[in-house]
Amino acid sequence: MDAIIKAHGLQKYFGTFHVLKDIDFEIMKGEVICIIGPSGSGKSTFLRCINQLEPIDAGYVMVDDEIVGYRRDGNRLFPLPDREIARQRQAVGMVFQKFHLFPHRTVLQNIIEGPVGVQKRPRQECVAEARVLLERVGLADKANAYPSELSGGQQQRIAIARALAMKPKAMLFDEPTSALDPELVGEVLGVMKELAASGTTMIVVTHEIGFCREVADRIVFMDGGMIVETGTAGEILENPRNPRVKNFISAVL
């Protein structure tokens, strides 16, 4: 199997603060990886680097065998123009902690904005696909609602549908349930479980340990900008080797 997303020697600074230290990472097609770890450990920043929402300072990220954000000529990397970066971003879908639906557009318009506006595919076809996606996230009756009329959980499910509408090769979830009221978390995790079961390649930054246990093929534990330990759910959650992981797991379980 091929790696869909690969990071090698990734370094990232915010000013003088070293956020990501020499990250090596790989995710195979169809794999589900959960990234856990204390806040400030660089989990979200790592996701944002994959989607080029943050520029990286050293190393590289590859998505689908393309170096992200740069054109390679020998050993020199030249930054790509905005248009090319926009094209590369279409390969990965991103779901944000705070949903970020477009409030001035209806649910349906939110979903077809990418495929129609950016990918220039025929509108009718995209609307039909959007309705299938809405069915899939259980919100077929909300097509004409505005985001402000939906609950947080519903908005997040629409955000997932919006990302899926681009037919990405992988999906990134940046703490998708952290901004939700506790009783709404389940419906979003439900949609994500269904996605995982259908073979979607997913990287999920989350604090939902139960979800990791159930769905993750591998769990990556990050702390202090480094990947501390990687392993199956059983290895990380039941039997962590690193004391830092052990402390974290015993604190959250």
């Binding site: 929402l53 248009r83 279409q90 477009f102 950016v118």
Partner: peptide
């Protein structure tokens, strides 16, 4: 700022 990021994440250029 999230609106710009969400738009970019579905492949829009900054200008668009």
């Amino acid at each position: 700022k999230g609106q710009m990021e969400a738009a970019q994440s579905i492949g829009m250029t900054k200008l668009r």
